[in-house]
């Protein structure tokens, strides 16, 4: 009877669910670096979240202005940059996997450098975009080009704030990746798998922010 009450977890051959693993003993060393980064990233969700709420307000109140303004953004460069960031995220995930395998550790530094280089490529493409928008008077200044349409200026104000904050985060990520890539090459003992994973977590988060910015900035209404 009691045999039917208990699910046959142990004998089923399935991998045990890691979320059900016992908590570390009191006083044992938890992975504080990783946990600390996750707590920081949770606070970052709220940091960028405020900008997204402002965007939702603008988009629902001035749908026509947001649609018009979005058609003035460069969808080709935006899509290219999305592909660059998604690729960089995959490469830094590979770097973490290589660092955890003794035979593959020689690849880690190169993969970290590649990720940082893709981050710089993203910033360069973004710079080209900003230059074009500045020349077309799309920055929300006194001579804003679409001043006749309500909401268009709000869209570009949010665009500058959101992509600017994202670029600052990305620059910090590039710097952190470069520091760890160099330290890994010089075989510094502190550049170990756990710390490299913490940097990778941050990089993935910057990627996630862009994943949401991409449709909200470039894809509001391309058919109009």
């Amino acid at each position: 009877m009691s045999g039917t009450m208990r699910p046959a977890r142990a004998g089923s051959g399935r991998r045990p669910d890691p979320a059900l693993a016992p908590l570390p003993e009191p006083g044992a060393d938890p992975d504080t670096g990783k946990l600390g980064m996750w707590i920081f990233l949770a606070s970052e969700v709220l940091f960028f979240g405020g900008v997204f709420v402002a965007y939702l307000y603008g988009r629902t109140h001035w749908p026509a202005g947001f649609a018009l303004a979005s058609r003035h953004t460069d969808v080709v460069l935006g899509t290219l940059n999305t592909a660059v960031l998604l690729t960089s995220s995959a490469i830094v995930a590979l770097a973490v996997a290589c660092e955890e395998h003794p035979g593959a550790r020689r690849w880690t530094a190169n993969l970290l450098w590649t990720t940082a280089a893709l981050g710089l490529a993203f910033l360069a493409i973004k710079g080209v975009e900003y230059r074009g928008e500045w020349q077309e008077h799309l920055f929300p200044t006194a001579d804003f080009a679409l001043a006749g349409t309500a909401g268009a200026e709000e869209f570009f104000a949010l665009y500058v704030v959101a992509t600017g904050l994202h670029a600052v985060h990305l620059s910090i990520g590039v710097a952190a990746l470069a520091v760890f890539a160099r330290a890994r090459r010089l075989r510094r003992p502190w550049a170990d798998a756990r710390r490299i994973e913490v940097v990778a977590l941050y990089w993935h988060f910057v990627d996630i922010v862009w994943i949401f910015l991409y449709p909200l900035i470039y894809l509001v209404s391309r058919h109009g």
């Binding site: 693993a21 996750w38 949770a42 970052e44």
Partner: peptide, 17 residues
């Protein structure tokens, strides 16, 4: 493959948003 504590922190950020 993360333990419950990490999943909880990740979910808390999005839930608070």
């Amino acid at each position: 493959s993360a333990p419950a504590l990490i999943r909880l922190v990740a979910a808390a950020g999005f839930a608070l948003w």
